[in-house]
Design a protein around this nucleic acid. Structure first.
Length: 707
RNA sequence: GCGCCCGUAGCUCAGUGGAUAGAGCGCUUGCCUCCGGAGUAAGAGGUCACAGGUUCGAAUCCUGUCGGGCGUACCA
C-alpha cells in the first residue's frame, strides 16, 4: 500500500491486482505457443496480465465500495485506489497535531536503550566545517531516535590525547612557549601551532615525495638531472650526495631522506628544482604537453612509458615546490625534531608533572571553544568520553589479547591478524595494530576499552558510532576483535559512516592547514542573515537583540540543514558562496513558512476547538493534510533507517505544501474567509506550524516565530 | 590487487519493485490597493553512465564494463 499518486487526493493505493493476475495465469496457463522465444513469451505474459488485471481490480474495488472506512473506491489502470473520508480523518490529524503539541509524531516507547556517539573533535586542533557535518548529523540522529521512542544516550568522545596532541605540544614547547597566549580563540591558536608542527615534522616526507614523483613521472626533469648535479657540485655539495641523487633520480629509483648525508644538500638543490620546473612550464605552454619515452635503465623501477607532462600537473608540482621551499632550511633539523616528539610522548607516558600540567591547561583552551560551539549549535551531550581516560584500560585489554593468543607481536608491535583468527581465506578484515612498538597507545587501543565501557557502564542495548566513512574498515576490525575477545555485544555495535566535506580545491584537513573553520563560516552566515533581516523583515518593532537571535537561528540553522539534507554516502563540496544563499531548498525557506504560520495565528482571537468542517476541500488543502498525517511514519522511518535526511526532506515538502496552500489569496483566504472555511483553514495553519516546529526541532534547527 | 561508496535535467541533489522520474539553483515570461514576496504561477531542460539478466512490472534487485572518490599494519 502506498499513497495515491495524484495530487489533491488523500488515500492509499494497491497494486495487488497485478500479483493476483500473474498468479492466476501461473495456475491456469493459457495454451502457449511452444515456439515462442523466452522474450516473446514474457511479452505475451505481460499482455495477458494487462488484460486480466483490470477486471480483478474492478472486482476487488466492488467489494470494498460498501466499506465505511473509504469515501470512494476506484479501479484505475489495474490499481485499486481507496480514498479516505476527509471529514473524520482530517479532524483526527489536524487536532491530533494541535493537541499533542511537542509530542506530535512521537513514537511508542521502545525497549532498546541506544547510545549515539558523535562529534569526537580533537583538542589542539580547530573545529572546521567538516566537523559540523558530523555534529549536525549525530545530533539529528539522536533527536530522532529519542523521539521515535528509544531511550537515547548522547555521547561525545574527545580526542584529547594522541599523536596530534603530542606534536602540537612539542611545537609549543620548542618554538612558542615564551609567546603571549591570546585572550580569546586560544583553541585556534593551538590549531595553528599543530599545523606548524606538521609542516616541520613532515617536511622531509613532502620533499622526498615530490622528488620521487618528478623522477618517475617527469622525463624532462630526469633528463636535466646531469646539468643540475653539475651545478650542485659547483655549489660545494659533497660528492657522495651528488652520486646518490644522480643515481636514484636518473634511474627512477626512490630517494630516501636518511641516505642524504649532508643537511645542506637538499636546501641547495631546491632552487635548482624550482628553476627547472619553471623552465618546463614555459616550454609546455609553448609546445604543448610532452610525452616521454620509457626509461632506458634496466634497474629503473618504472617499467612503462612515463606519463604525459601537462601544464596542470607541472603547475601543481611547482606550487608544491613553492610551499615546501618556504621552510626548506628546516631540512637538517627534522630527524632531531622527530626524536624530540618521541621523547615528548614518553613524558606523557610517565606522566611527567610539568608536561601533564601543560597538557591539561591547553586541552582546556580547546574544550572552552568546543563548549561555546555546542552552545551555539544547540547541541548537548549526556556523556563525555575522553581518549585520555581509556588509555590504561585499553592497554590492559591489549595485554589480555596477547596472553590469550588473539593478538601477537608482529614486526615489533602487538597486532591482531583478524582474517587468520577467523579462518578467512579471502582478505577481509586484514590486520590491525593495537599498540605502538614503543608502548604508546593507538586510537585502536582506546576504542577497544571505549566499546567495553559503553555497554558495561551505561547499560545500553545498542551503540552507534557516527564517524566518517574512511574509518569503515577500522570499525569492522574493532568490532571483530571485540567479538574474538568474547564480547557478546559486539554484534550490537554499528558504525554509521558518512562521506566527508571537501573544498572545491580538494580535501580539507587540519594537517594540511587548509581547513575552513566553523567559526568563520558561522560568523559569515549570521552576518548575512542579519543583512537580510534588515532589508526584508516587515516587522520594524524588533529589537536589536531579537534581530540578532533570529540571525543566529537562520544562519546556524542554514548550515545544519545543508549538512543533513544530503545522503550520508555523498561527498559535500563546501562553498561559502552556496552556503550564504538562503533561497530555495534551504533552512530559511522552512523557517519562513513557520514564521508565516505563526503570524497568521497571531491575528486569530481564539483557535478553533473540537471539530471543524473538512468538506469540499481544495486540492492544496488535501495535500497539506496528507503531508501532516505522514509525519509520525516519517519519524519512524528516519529512526529505523538511521537517516535524518528523511526528516529534512519531509519538512521541506511540508513547507512547500503550506506555501501552495497559502499562496492563492483569491481562492483560499484564511482570516477573511467565511465560516466554516475560516475555522478549517485556521486549524490547518496551526497544525502545520506545529509540525514544522517539531520537524525542524528534530534536525536541531530553530523555528523562529518572527523573521 | 582486494574492499566500500558515487554516477538521475546545464549545475546541486531527492527518489531502493508499481501509474506520466521530482525539487532547488540558473534561464525565459507573469503575480504585491490583498492574511509576511526569504514567497509564488507558467515554460524550456532526461538514452536515470553503459551492456546483459531477474520480474507481469526496474532509476530501484543481480552480473559485468566504463568513469570518479575513499580505504587497505604502529594517523585519527
Amino acid at each position: 500500500m502506498r499513497p495515491v499518486p495524484f495530487s489533491g487526493s488523500w488515500g492509499t493505493a494497491s497494486s495487488v491486482s497485478f500479483q493476483l493476475a500473474n498468479e492466476s495465469l501461473q495456475k491456469d496457463p493459457p495454451s502457449v505457443d511452444e515456439s515462442l522465444s523466452k522474450k516473446e513469451a514474457r511479452a505475451r505474459q505481460q499482455e495477458l496480465v494487462r488484460e486480466r488485471v483490470g477486471a480483478i481490480a474492478e472486482a476487488i474495488a466492488d467489494k470494498l465500495r460498501c466499506r465505511p472506512e473509504f469515501d470512494r473506491v476506484e479501479a484505475v489502470n489495474g490499481y485499486i485506489n481507496l480514498y479516505f473520508p476527509t471529514q473524520k480523518l482530517a479532524n483526527e490529524v489536524v487536532f491530533g497535531a494541535i493537541g499533542q503539541g511537542d509530542d506530535f509524531g512521537r513514537g511508542p516507547k521502545q525497549a532498546d536503550r541506544v547510545m549515539i556517539e558523535f562529534s569526537q573533535p580533537n583538542t589542539h586542533k580547530e573545529f572546521h566545517v567538516g566537523h559540523s557535518r558530523n555534529a549536525a548529523l549525530g545530533n539529528a540522529l539522536a533527536n530522532i531516535t529519542e523521539f521515535a521512542g528509544f531511550e537515547t544516550v548522547r555521547a561525545n568522545y574527545i580526542g584529547d590525547i594522541g599523536m596530534h596532541v603530542i606534536r602540537c605540544l612539542w611545537c609549543y614547547d620548542a618554538f612558542h612557549q615564551h609567546e603571549e597566549v591570546p585572550k580569546d580563540k586560544r583553541g585556534r591558536w593551538l590549531g595553528d601551532i599543530y599545523a606548524e608542527s606538521v609542516r616541520r615534522l613532515d617536511l622531509q616526507e613532502g620533499v622526498v615525495k615530490l622528488l620521487n614523483e618528478l623522477s618517475t613521472q617527469d622525463a624532462q626533469f630526469v633528463s636535466a638531472i646531469d646539468k643540475m648535479m653539475k651545478e650542485l657540485f659547483e655549489a660545494g655539495v659533497p660528492g657522495e650526495d651528488i652520486a646518490y641523487l644522480l643515481g636514484q633520480i636518473a634511474n627512477q629509483r626512490p630517494v630516501v631522506a636518511d641516505q642524504i648525508l649532508d643537511g645542506e644538500t637538499i636546501p641547495k638543490f631546491w632552487p635548482l628544482i624550482g628553476e627547472q620546473l619553471l623552465f618546463e612550464l614555459e616550454y609546455i605552454r609553448e609546445h604543448g604537453p610532452q610525452e616521454a619515452p620509457p626509461p632506458t635503465s634496466r634497474t629503473a623501477t618504472v617499467k612503462g612509458p612515463l606519463p604525459v607532462v601537462t601544464v596542470e600537473n607541472t603547475q601543481e608540482r611547482y606550487e608544491r615546490w613553492q610551499r615546501l621551499g618556504r621552510n626548506i632550511e628546516w631540512w637538517p633539523h627534522v630527524p632531531q625534531w622527530r626524536e624530540e616528539v618521541r621523547e615528548t610522548f614518553q613524558k606523557w607516558e610517565r606522566k611527567d608533572p610539568e608536561f601533564v600540567k601543560l597538557w591539561d591547561e591547553t586541552r582546556e583552551w580547546s574544550m572552552q571553544e568546543f563548549h561555546r560551539i555546542y552552545d551555539e549549535l544547540g547541541i548537548t551531550f549526556d556523556v563525555w568520553f575522553y581518549e585520555s581516560e581509556v588509555e590504561e584500560e585499553g592497554r590492559e585489554i591489549v595485554k589480555e589479547l596477547l596472553e590469550r593468543g588473539i593478538a601477537e607481536i608482529s614486526e615489533g608491535l602487538p597486532v591482531v591478524k583478524i582474517d587468520e583468527k577467523l579462518g578467512l581465506e579471502k582478505e577481509t578484515y586484514r590486520t590491525l595494530p593495537i599498540l605502538r612498538s614503543d608502548g604508546t597507545t593507538l586510537y585502536s587501543t582506546k576504542d577497544l576499552e571505549l566499546t567495553r565501557r559503553k555497554f558495561q557502564d551505561y547499560e545500553i542495548d545498542r551503540s552507534v558510532w557516527v564517524i566518517d566513512v574512511r574509518q569503515s574498515l577500522y570499525f569492522q576490525q574493532i568490532f571483530k576483535i571485540m567479538e574474538l575477545w568474547g564480547f557478546e555485544q559486539a554484534e550490537k555495535c554499528f558504525h554509521l559512516g558518512y562521506e566527508i566535506v571537501t573544498l572545491p580545491e580538494g580535501t580539507m584537513s587540519s594537517r594540511a592547514g587548509n581547513a575552513v573553520f566553523y567559526e568563520d563560516v558561522a560568523a559569515a552566515l549570521k552576518q548575512r542573515a542579519r543583512e537580510i533581516i534588515d532589508e526584508k523583515s516587515p516587522n520594524t518593532s524588533l529589537t536589536e537583540e531579537q534581530k540578532n537571535t533570529i540571525a543566529h537561528d537562520v544562519g546556524v540553522g542554514s548550515l545544519l540543514y545543508s549538512m543533513i539534507n544530503r545522503d550520508n554516502h555523498r561527498v559535500i563540496t563546501f562553498s561559502l558562496e552556496e552556503a550564504l544563499s538562503f533561497d530555495g531548498h534551504a533552512a530559511p525557506y522552512i523557517q519562513y513558512a513557520h514564521a508565516r504560520a505563526c503570524r497568521i495565528l497571531d491575528r486569530v482571537d481564539k483557535l478553533p476547538e473540537g471539530e471543524v468542517i473538512f468538506e469540499d476541500l481544495q486540492s492544496q488543502e488535501i495535500d497539506l493534510i496528507e503531508q501532516i498525517a505522514a509525519f509520525p511514519t516519517e519519524v519512524e522511518k528516519s529512526a529505523f533507517e538511521h537517516k535524518p535526511l528523511v526528516i529534512a526532506t519531509y519538512v521541506f515538502e511540508l513547507a512547500q505544501k503550506f506555501n501552495d496552500f497559502y499562496a492563492d489569496f483569491e481562492k483560499r483566504p484564511i482570516l477573511t474567509a467565511p465560516e466554516p472555511q475560516r475555522s478549517m483553514r485556521i486549524a490547518l495553519v496551526a497544525a502545520t506550524g506545529r509540525t514544522l516546529a517539531n520537524g525542524l526541532g528534530l534536525l536541531g534547527v530553530a523555528a523562529p516565530e518572527v523573521m
